[in-house]
């Protein structure tokens, strides 16, 4: 079953640990000290957006009907399998930026080093090692989780069920209280 990065907005503290970890994961050395000394700019693929005083992590959803993929004329944006993540191959990229325009979430951005674009790859290497994506592991509050979509839906339904039940019980109690008065 498909897993995806799920965001719990209430838990985001705007620490940007996800952005930081994403950049480190996509660097050559994967060592923050060395990245700075070498002047490397790996950039981040997840973005903590400020909206008023709120912090909203916005990330690639790996859409089924991926607009970026359809817009790409060279196949630089591609999928390995029907349900697999939407990936980016810089060697095939001609820098037309059609994907940047096409993405409705604005999560494909121009790479700070000017070569191609930054696009979430769900940390394929880490997934192969049985790890969660770097941004998820880095999140100190659990605002980001890499979970099964079905599980997420189930979780939501459970919450709704709980709320409905307590609402019903509260109404009942009130009714009884009125009757007893």
């Amino acid at each position: 079953m498909a897993r995806k990065i799920v965001v719990n907005l209430e838990k985001c503290m705007a620490c940007k640990a996800c952005e930081f970890a994403c950049a480190v994961e996509h660097s050559l050395s994967k060592n923050p000290d060395i990245i700075v000394l070498r002047g490397e700019k790996p950039g981040h693929r997840i973005n903590v957006e400020a909206y008023g005083r709120n912090a909203i992590p916005v990330n690639c959803n790996h859409c089924e009907e991926a607009a970026c993929l359809m817009a790409c004329p060279t196949g630089a944006i591609y999928r390995n399998s029907d349900k697999g993540p939407v990936l980016f191959n810089s060697e095939r990229c001609i820098g037309c930026r059609m994907c940047v325009q096409a993405c409705p979430f604005g999560v494909i951005t121009i790479s700070p080093d000017g070569k191609g674009v930054l696009k979430c790859d769900l940390c394929m290497e880490r997934l192969a090692e049985g790890k969660d994506p770097a941004c998820v592991t880095a999140c100190p509050t659990g605002a980001l989780r890499y979970i099964d979509e079905a599980d997420e839906s189930k979780e939501k339904r459970q919450k709704v069920a709980q709320k409905m039940l307590s609402a019903q019980q509260a109404a009942k109690k009130e009714e009884e209280a009125v009757r007893n008065d």
Binding site: E19, F20, S27, I35, K41, P42, H44
Partner: peptide
């Protein structure tokens, strides 16, 4: 405040 060390932040 934080400085973005790895990008154009």
């Amino acid at each position: 405040c934080r400085i973005d060390p790895f990008g154009d932040g």
